[in-house]
Nucleic acid binder design. Structure first.
Lengths: 256, 256
DNA sequence: AAAGGAGTTTCCGTAATATGGAAAATAGCA
DNA sequence: TGCTATTTTCCATATTACGGAAACTCCTTT
């Protein structure tokens, strides 16, 4: 009965193990076998054996007191080795540092994955009131300057395959873009001006301005941004850093 | 024939998949199926099926031109979610930033895993001549100030299980500690003074000073350090930052 | 253009493997 | 001490992953 649908076969035990890792990554706390078993609909012994395998290689760690499991450092090491992000972070870091220093705000680097933006690196503002984002964070692309800067430069075909007709857009704040039409219009403008602005669309009280970074072939491979509290990082302030951001973006793009 | 030795059984396909990921992480470049198959002694179709499974979940990416594979962003995301490192980085980052700014050198955070030190976070010096280390890097513990700061505070039992009698120590430079006796003596001193110094033991031209961070139970859970070019970051300079480092270490330790 | 070659992908029968249920062990709590 | 909730181990069985070889793709060479 294998291959009954057109789909190619994946190795089930690997699939389960990866699902388990992902479950642990979402579940912030240590998790026991029973709980995992219930959530993933796998037998107790199956979960146990998978965890044993993962544990013996350092992908999960077992708290010997509670017997529960959490992600292990091996994953951190592997994550740091991902070549594509490594190169991006390496090249971009000095520029982010410079931006953060000259603006006193937080500077970020992110890429687009599907309809989500993934933060690869951030240099936090030295101010006490600051916007903190952790590397690795994912957010809906249409609610963030970074996401809009990236979405604006993907092909029409790609865009259509991501956002199906009349699909409702999740709103993170009352100011988030909520309809596909609105998004399209907005992205057109972003493409024209070369940068994207987010005025409390991601979170009330936070503004952000972002420009994409282009690869050899003209594709937008990542984006950098500056975020700050709306009270301090006003539209005016964003206007002031706009040119600097665009200059830096070109400098970075030249290295790809 | 299962379980013939006392060892518990791991799930082989998962084991293979993890081995494959690790192979890709060491192999900096994109790698083809044949090469992987040869190195890991697995059949071509096996490698292909494993990669297909990993690919469909974003753990590896296939370059459609060359057909070759590399690690995918999913691993980066997972790596960022590892709870233990996340917390450490979060709490330590502002202190590292402060240290780097006040010294103009690079500040690092690392943990001990086995006989290796893993860098969790680094804030680079603004100087042009600077020591750059990437997060995720692993180095032999006995050759780095960070490692020595951590080794000095593990229990005798742990130390003995790590460094078997008469085991030769790898030397990264001519100044590296090369005998177990020497290391023991050195660590005793580190424990007394509460900080570790590395004078070109890790790399010629680089000096480093490090102090451990202690958890609730008094265990050394991580270490922070400042590194710089030996020409600029001299013994004198290290002496000057010593106290600041130790104060900060206490402040951080109080949060665990 | 056509043939050759190196690599990837698919197919298939078979042997090995992972599976889940249940028992055993362990820990936590009343 | 006994009871409950979990984790861990064991086992027979059916499912699953396996590797060899064929098919296919994409370059390179002549």
């Amino acid at each position: 009965m294998e291959n009954s649908t057109g789909k190619k076969e994946r190795i089930k035990s690997i699939d389960k193990a990866l699902g388990l890792l992902e479950f642990l990554s979402v579940n912030e706390q240590e998790t026991g076998i029973t709980e995992i078993s219930k959530n993933l609909h796998l037998g107790l012994s199956t979960v146990h054996r998978i965890l044993f395998t993962l544990k013996s290689r350092g992908y999960v760690i077992q708290n010997l007191n509670t017997k529960k499991y959490r992600l292990g450092i091996k994953l951190f090491t592997l994550g740091c080795a991902v070549q594509s992000t490594k190169r991006l972070v390496e090249i971009t870091k000095p520029y982010l540092k410079q931006l953060s220093q000259s603006t006193n705000e937080t500077a970020n680097l992110a890429i687009l994955e599907g309809k989500e933006v993934i933060y690869l690196d951030t240099i936090g503002s030295p101010e006490i009131l600051r916007t903190e984002i952790m590397a690795g964070t994912r957010t809906p692309a249409h609610c963030a300057a970074l996401g809009k800067a990236l979405l604006a430069f993907i092909s029409d075909g790609e865009f259509k395959s991501l956002y199906k007709k009349d699909e409702p857009l999740s709103s993170l704040t009352s100011k988030s873009i909520s309809s596909l039409e609105e998004l399209k219009k907005h992205l057109k403008k972003v493409k024209e001006q070369g940068y994207a602005v987010d005025r409390e669309e991601y979170k009330i009280g936070i503004n952000c301005i972002s420009v994409p970074i282009f690869g050899r072939n003209g594709e937008a491979i990542a984006a950098i941004s500056i975020t700050g509290p709306a009270s301090r990082f006003t539209i005016d302030e964003m206007g002031k850093v706009k040119d600097k951001l665009m200059t830096i973006s070109k400098e970075i793009s030249n290295q790809f």
